[in-house]
Design a protein around this nucleic acid. Sequence first.
DNA 1: CGGTATCCAGCGCGATACTG
DNA 2: CAGTATCGCGCTGGATACCG
Lengths: 109, 109
Amino acid sequence: MARRAEGKSGCSVESALAVIGGRWKGVVLYWLSTGTLRFGELRRLLPSCTQRMLTLQLRELEQDGLVKRTVYAEVPPRVEYELTPFGRSLVPILLDLKAWGERYRRRLP
Amino acid sequence: MARRAEGKSGCSVESALAVIGGRWKGVVLYWLSTGTLRFGELRRLLPSCTQRMLTLQLRELEQDGLVKRTVYAEVPPRVEYELTPFGRSLVPILLDLKAWGERYRRRLP
DNA sequence: CGGTATCCAGCGCGATACTG
DNA sequence: CAGTATCGCGCTGGATACCG
Protein backbone atom coordinates (compact mmCIF):
# COMPACT_ATOMS: atom_id res chain seq x y z
CA MET A 1 0.00 0.00 0.00
CA ALA A 2 2.76 2.39 -0.78
CA ARG A 3 0.34 4.77 -2.39
CA ARG A 4 -2.12 4.97 0.49
CA ALA A 5 0.53 5.10 3.16
CA GLU A 6 1.96 8.42 2.17
CA GLY A 7 -1.32 10.21 2.56
CA LYS A 8 0.21 13.10 4.40
CA SER A 9 3.02 14.03 2.05
CA GLY A 10 2.77 15.50 -1.41
CA CYS A 11 -0.07 17.61 -2.67
CA SER A 12 -3.74 17.07 -1.90
CA VAL A 13 -4.52 15.79 -5.38
CA GLU A 14 -2.27 12.88 -4.54
CA SER A 15 -4.08 12.27 -1.27
CA ALA A 16 -7.42 12.13 -3.02
CA LEU A 17 -6.16 9.84 -5.76
CA ALA A 18 -4.53 7.63 -3.15
CA VAL A 19 -7.94 7.07 -1.60
CA ILE A 20 -9.99 6.43 -4.74
CA GLY A 21 -7.19 5.18 -6.99
CA GLY A 22 -7.48 1.50 -6.06
CA ARG A 23 -8.29 -0.86 -8.87
CA TRP A 24 -12.02 -1.10 -8.05
CA LYS A 25 -12.69 1.73 -5.67
CA GLY A 26 -14.10 4.16 -8.16
CA VAL A 27 -16.73 1.71 -9.34
CA VAL A 28 -17.55 0.51 -5.84
CA LEU A 29 -18.10 4.07 -4.69
CA TYR A 30 -20.16 4.77 -7.75
CA TRP A 31 -22.50 1.86 -7.14
CA LEU A 32 -22.78 2.65 -3.45
CA SER A 33 -23.77 6.17 -4.39
CA THR A 34 -26.96 4.65 -5.79
CA GLY A 35 -27.86 3.22 -2.39
CA THR A 36 -27.00 0.67 0.28
CA LEU A 37 -25.86 -2.68 -1.09
CA ARG A 38 -25.13 -6.14 0.26
CA PHE A 39 -21.80 -7.79 -0.36
CA GLY A 40 -23.31 -10.26 -2.79
CA GLU A 41 -25.01 -7.49 -4.73
CA LEU A 42 -21.73 -5.68 -5.16
CA ARG A 43 -20.15 -8.91 -6.35
CA ARG A 44 -22.77 -9.22 -9.04
CA LEU A 45 -22.27 -5.61 -10.06
CA LEU A 46 -18.51 -6.13 -10.41
CA PRO A 47 -18.28 -9.51 -12.11
CA SER A 48 -14.62 -9.16 -13.01
CA CYS A 49 -13.57 -8.26 -9.49
CA THR A 50 -12.64 -11.24 -7.35
CA GLN A 51 -14.25 -11.74 -3.96
CA ARG A 52 -10.95 -11.22 -2.25
CA MET A 53 -10.30 -7.91 -4.00
CA LEU A 54 -13.80 -6.67 -3.31
CA THR A 55 -13.30 -7.40 0.39
CA LEU A 56 -9.94 -5.68 0.49
CA GLN A 57 -11.09 -2.57 -1.34
CA LEU A 58 -14.17 -2.29 0.87
CA ARG A 59 -12.02 -2.60 3.97
CA GLU A 60 -9.75 0.20 2.81
CA LEU A 61 -12.68 2.43 1.95
CA GLU A 62 -14.05 1.68 5.41
CA GLN A 63 -10.73 2.59 7.06
CA ASP A 64 -10.61 5.80 5.07
CA GLY A 65 -14.03 6.71 6.41
CA LEU A 66 -15.86 6.67 3.08
CA VAL A 67 -17.91 3.54 3.61
CA LYS A 68 -19.86 2.17 6.57
CA ARG A 69 -20.10 -1.59 7.05
CA THR A 70 -23.03 -3.06 8.95
CA VAL A 71 -23.14 -6.71 9.99
CA TYR A 72 -26.52 -8.22 10.80
CA ALA A 73 -26.42 -11.15 13.21
CA GLU A 74 -28.57 -13.41 11.10
CA VAL A 75 -28.34 -16.79 9.49
CA PRO A 76 -27.40 -16.67 6.71
CA PRO A 77 -25.19 -13.69 7.50
CA ARG A 78 -25.97 -10.35 5.92
CA VAL A 79 -23.54 -7.48 5.52
CA GLU A 80 -24.52 -4.15 4.09
CA TYR A 81 -22.35 -1.36 2.78
CA GLU A 82 -23.28 2.29 2.45
CA LEU A 83 -21.52 5.59 1.98
CA THR A 84 -20.79 7.72 5.04
CA PRO A 85 -21.62 11.43 4.83
CA PHE A 86 -17.97 12.00 4.07
CA GLY A 87 -18.10 9.40 1.34
CA ARG A 88 -21.20 11.04 -0.05
CA SER A 89 -19.28 14.31 -0.29
CA LEU A 90 -17.20 12.68 -2.98
CA VAL A 91 -20.14 11.62 -5.14
CA PRO A 92 -20.52 14.84 -7.17
CA ILE A 93 -16.86 14.67 -8.11
CA LEU A 94 -17.25 11.01 -8.99
CA LEU A 95 -20.14 11.84 -11.30
CA ASP A 96 -18.09 14.56 -12.95
CA LEU A 97 -15.31 12.05 -13.43
CA LYS A 98 -17.77 9.61 -14.92
CA ALA A 99 -19.05 12.20 -17.36
CA TRP A 100 -15.50 13.12 -18.30
CA GLY A 101 -14.65 9.44 -18.73
CA GLU A 102 -17.48 9.11 -21.21
CA ARG A 103 -16.13 11.97 -23.26
CA TYR A 104 -12.70 10.43 -23.10
CA ARG A 105 -13.98 7.13 -24.42
CA ARG A 106 -15.69 8.76 -27.33
CA ARG A 107 -12.30 10.11 -28.49
CA LEU A 108 -10.74 6.67 -28.63
CA PRO A 109 -9.70 5.11 -31.99
CA MET B 1 -0.21 -1.08 -18.29
CA ALA B 2 -3.08 -3.35 -17.43
CA ARG B 3 -5.05 -0.46 -16.06
CA ARG B 4 -4.74 1.83 -19.05
CA ALA B 5 -5.13 -0.91 -21.60
CA GLU B 6 -8.69 -1.82 -20.71
CA GLY B 7 -9.95 1.66 -21.32
CA LYS B 8 -12.95 0.48 -23.25
CA SER B 9 -14.39 -2.03 -20.81
CA GLY B 10 -15.98 -1.39 -17.45
CA CYS B 11 -17.71 1.81 -16.43
CA SER B 12 -16.59 5.31 -17.33
CA VAL B 13 -15.37 6.05 -13.83
CA GLU B 14 -12.80 3.35 -14.40
CA SER B 15 -11.76 4.89 -17.71
CA ALA B 16 -11.22 8.26 -16.10
CA LEU B 17 -9.27 6.84 -13.19
CA ALA B 18 -7.21 4.76 -15.60
CA VAL B 19 -6.09 7.98 -17.27
CA ILE B 20 -5.28 10.07 -14.21
CA GLY B 21 -4.55 7.21 -11.79
CA GLY B 22 -0.84 6.94 -12.56
CA ARG B 23 1.52 7.52 -9.70
CA TRP B 24 2.31 11.15 -10.62
CA LYS B 25 -0.28 12.11 -13.18
CA GLY B 26 -2.60 13.97 -10.88
CA VAL B 27 0.14 16.28 -9.69
CA VAL B 28 1.63 16.76 -13.13
CA LEU B 29 -1.77 17.74 -14.50
CA TYR B 30 -2.31 20.03 -11.57
CA TRP B 31 0.95 21.87 -12.12
CA LEU B 32 0.38 22.09 -15.86
CA SER B 33 -3.01 23.64 -15.15
CA THR B 34 -1.10 26.64 -13.81
CA GLY B 35 0.61 27.15 -17.15
CA THR B 36 3.13 25.80 -19.65
CA LEU B 37 6.22 24.28 -18.04
CA ARG B 38 9.57 23.00 -19.16
CA PHE B 39 10.72 19.50 -18.33
CA GLY B 40 13.24 20.75 -15.84
CA GLU B 41 10.67 22.93 -14.13
CA LEU B 42 8.39 19.96 -13.66
CA ARG B 43 11.30 18.00 -12.23
CA ARG B 44 11.86 20.66 -9.62
CA LEU B 45 8.15 20.73 -8.79
CA LEU B 46 8.11 16.97 -8.26
CA PRO B 47 11.33 16.34 -6.36
CA SER B 48 10.42 12.81 -5.32
CA CYS B 49 9.56 11.74 -8.86
CA THR B 50 12.47 10.27 -10.78
CA GLN B 51 13.34 11.63 -14.20
CA ARG B 52 12.41 8.36 -15.79
CA MET B 53 8.97 8.29 -14.20
CA LEU B 54 8.30 11.89 -15.11
CA THR B 55 9.12 11.11 -18.73
CA LEU B 56 6.92 8.01 -18.76
CA GLN B 57 3.94 9.69 -17.17
CA LEU B 58 4.22 12.68 -19.52
CA ARG B 59 4.36 10.35 -22.51
CA GLU B 60 1.21 8.57 -21.41
CA LEU B 61 -0.61 11.82 -20.81
CA GLU B 62 0.49 12.89 -24.26
CA GLN B 63 -0.82 9.68 -25.82
CA ASP B 64 -4.11 10.10 -24.01
CA GLY B 65 -4.43 13.55 -25.53
CA LEU B 66 -4.29 15.53 -22.29
CA VAL B 67 -0.85 17.07 -22.74
CA LYS B 68 0.93 18.65 -25.69
CA ARG B 69 4.68 18.33 -25.99
CA THR B 70 6.67 20.92 -27.92
CA VAL B 71 10.34 20.47 -28.75
CA TYR B 72 12.36 23.55 -29.62
CA ALA B 73 15.36 22.94 -31.86
CA GLU B 74 17.81 24.86 -29.74
CA VAL B 75 21.03 24.24 -27.92
CA PRO B 76 20.64 23.47 -25.11
CA PRO B 77 17.42 21.67 -25.99
CA ARG B 78 14.15 22.99 -24.63
CA VAL B 79 10.96 20.98 -24.27
CA GLU B 80 7.72 22.47 -23.07
CA TYR B 81 4.59 20.81 -21.84
CA GLU B 82 1.10 22.26 -21.75
CA LEU B 83 -2.46 21.01 -21.38
CA THR B 84 -4.51 20.44 -24.51
CA PRO B 85 -8.07 21.81 -24.56
CA PHE B 86 -9.21 18.32 -23.66
CA GLY B 87 -6.75 18.20 -20.80
CA ARG B 88 -7.99 21.57 -19.64
CA SER B 89 -11.51 20.16 -19.49
CA LEU B 90 -10.32 17.99 -16.63
CA VAL B 91 -8.95 20.86 -14.56
CA PRO B 92 -12.16 21.80 -12.72
CA ILE B 93 -12.58 18.20 -11.60
CA LEU B 94 -8.94 18.10 -10.56
CA LEU B 95 -9.43 21.21 -8.43
CA ASP B 96 -12.50 19.66 -6.82
CA LEU B 97 -10.45 16.58 -6.08
CA LYS B 98 -7.74 18.73 -4.60
CA ALA B 99 -10.22 20.50 -2.34
CA TRP B 100 -11.69 17.18 -1.29
CA GLY B 101 -8.22 15.81 -0.63
CA GLU B 102 -7.56 18.71 1.71
CA ARG B 103 -10.67 17.92 3.69
CA TYR B 104 -9.66 14.29 3.77
CA ARG B 105 -6.27 15.14 5.22
CA ARG B 106 -7.78 17.23 7.93
CA ARG B 107 -9.62 14.14 9.17
CA LEU B 108 -6.44 12.12 9.58
CA PRO B 109 -5.18 11.14 13.07
C1' DC C 1 19.02 19.96 -20.91
C1' DG C 2 16.19 16.34 -21.60
C1' DG C 3 16.08 12.47 -22.28
C1' DT C 4 17.07 6.44 -23.06
C1' DA C 5 18.73 1.91 -21.46
C1' DT C 6 19.04 -1.56 -18.19
C1' DC C 7 18.25 -3.95 -14.19
C1' DC C 8 15.42 -5.29 -10.41
C1' DA C 9 12.44 -5.03 -6.02
C1' DG C 10 7.98 -4.88 -4.13
C1' DC C 11 3.34 -5.19 -3.96
C1' DG C 12 -1.10 -5.07 -6.34
C1' DC C 13 -3.83 -8.22 -7.72
C1' DG C 14 -5.55 -12.76 -9.37
C1' DA C 15 -6.57 -17.88 -8.65
C1' DT C 16 -7.88 -21.21 -5.72
C1' DA C 17 -9.21 -23.43 -1.55
C1' DC C 18 -11.14 -23.46 2.96
C1' DT C 19 -14.59 -21.62 6.96
C1' DG C 20 -18.26 -19.83 10.55
C1' DC D 1 -23.62 -15.66 2.53
C1' DA D 2 -19.64 -13.41 3.34
C1' DG D 3 -15.89 -13.87 4.19
C1' DT D 4 -10.23 -15.53 5.45
C1' DA D 5 -5.77 -18.14 3.93
C1' DT D 6 -2.20 -19.09 0.96
C1' DC D 7 0.51 -18.83 -3.14
C1' DG D 8 2.50 -16.69 -6.93
C1' DC D 9 2.81 -13.74 -11.11
C1' DG D 10 3.33 -9.40 -13.58
C1' DC D 11 3.45 -4.76 -13.81
C1' DT D 12 4.70 -0.30 -11.59
C1' DG D 13 7.98 2.25 -10.49
C1' DG D 14 12.85 3.00 -8.29
C1' DA D 15 18.20 3.30 -8.94
C1' DT D 16 21.76 4.03 -11.76
C1' DA D 17 24.30 4.85 -15.87
C1' DC D 18 24.84 6.57 -20.38
C1' DC D 19 23.64 9.76 -24.74
C1' DG D 20 22.64 13.67 -28.46
